[in-house]
């Protein structure tokens, strides 16, 4: 869990470090969407790796079943 959090912080921190000046210059809408994308990606990264068993294999999707 701690490792996953470090990885998530690394993702957000790394991209912000690379684009810091661009991010500072951008307008409010851009900053909000940028922050939402990065924070949700970091949350998804932690959750998807801690709650692995909630994952679906999509086996429930309908398939063609005629004897062909």
């Amino acid at each position: 869990m701690i490792l996953l959090l470090i990885q998530a912080v690394g993702l957000v921190g790394g991209l912000l470090f690379v684009q810091w000046r661009e991010w500072k210059k951008s307008n409010r809408v851009t900053r909000i969407i940028y922050a939402v994308c990065l924070l949700s990606a970091a949350t998804m990264w932690v959750l998807s790796n801690t709650l692995m068993f909630t994952h679906t294999s999509f086996a429930w999707l309908p398939k063609f079943s005629f004897a062909g």
Partner: peptide
């Protein structure tokens, strides 16, 4: 008013994590 060029890396990172999840 969104600056598309600026958000490209964030959207790309989101889709990588989303795809793997």
């Amino acid at each position: 008013s969104l600056e598309a060029r600026t958000v490209v890396p964030a959207v790309g990172a989101w889709i990588v994590v989303f795809g793997f999840w």
